[in-house]
Amino acid sequence: MAATKCKIESGVQLFARLIRKPEIENFYTDLFQPGLRRNDVVEMFGNISFSSLLIDMISEALLPKQTNARPLGVLLLNTAGQFSYVELVNEMKTKVESLYTNEDRPADIESILQKALSNLFILDIYNATQMYATIHNLDTIFVQNLNISLLIVDTLTAFYWLEQGFKISKMDLYIKTLLKMIQKVSKEYKVTFMYTRPGYFGSSKDSDNLETCEIQVSEGVNIKIQLLDKNSTGEYQVNVKTVDSYYKKCFCTLNNGIKWQ
């Protein structure tokens, strides 16, 4: 008889796993068509900064477009040091202000902004030891912050070279190991997991050709997104590959965020 391994969990952990989280299906439909599902794993790759795209996603999660939608709690693991917090706050401030006309603008815009930002949780990570300890601590973080529905790691591969000794591990294998570790927790707590990786980071050259590459759900990832600078004029192309579809979207950068075309 095969040995079965059972996991003992506290009532709080059980409650955290079973609690009903805000709907994710209608989140960021400008990019995700027909919409995200719980437990989806999204890989974003490219050779340019993801900061603007991530800012737009996070601000929509915290300030949903639909009037009755519940905001999504977001946990950001910042390992790359690229993400601009100032820009996120500025973009959210603009969004909050745009909800009102000059006549009906509430006096305390700041408190609306504060309320929206209270659903954001940030972990600034500076080395591999801290990253692994944090990954193993995700369980506790999800239990303590029940509203977290979206986990973003920017980027997953930031400490790869720090961990390489005289023997080098394959880049794909490195990603796969980390994915396995994080997914174990994200699936349990029904959290959608997104991560970024630099375009060069991968053992196989074919994996970057989204049109032809096959997504193997068994590997963990079920949506791949490639970010490309279209023509150096502030227009960007996003190639999206899911298990059963492939499509392209474009956006341009404006002073108050990005605009999907």
Binding site: L62, L77, Y85, V86, V89, L113, Q114, A116, L117, S118, N119, L120, F121, I122, L123, D124, I125, Y126, T129, Q130, A133, T134, H136, N137, T140, I141, N145
Partner: peptide
């Protein structure tokens, strides 16, 4: 002890706003 000592401290968005 490992997790307390070595995992990154969590920062809430409201703290971030104040810091900025």
């Amino acid at each position: 002890e490992i997790l307390t000592k070595f995992s990154a401290p969590i920062i809430n968005g409201t703290t971030l706003l104040k810091r900025i």
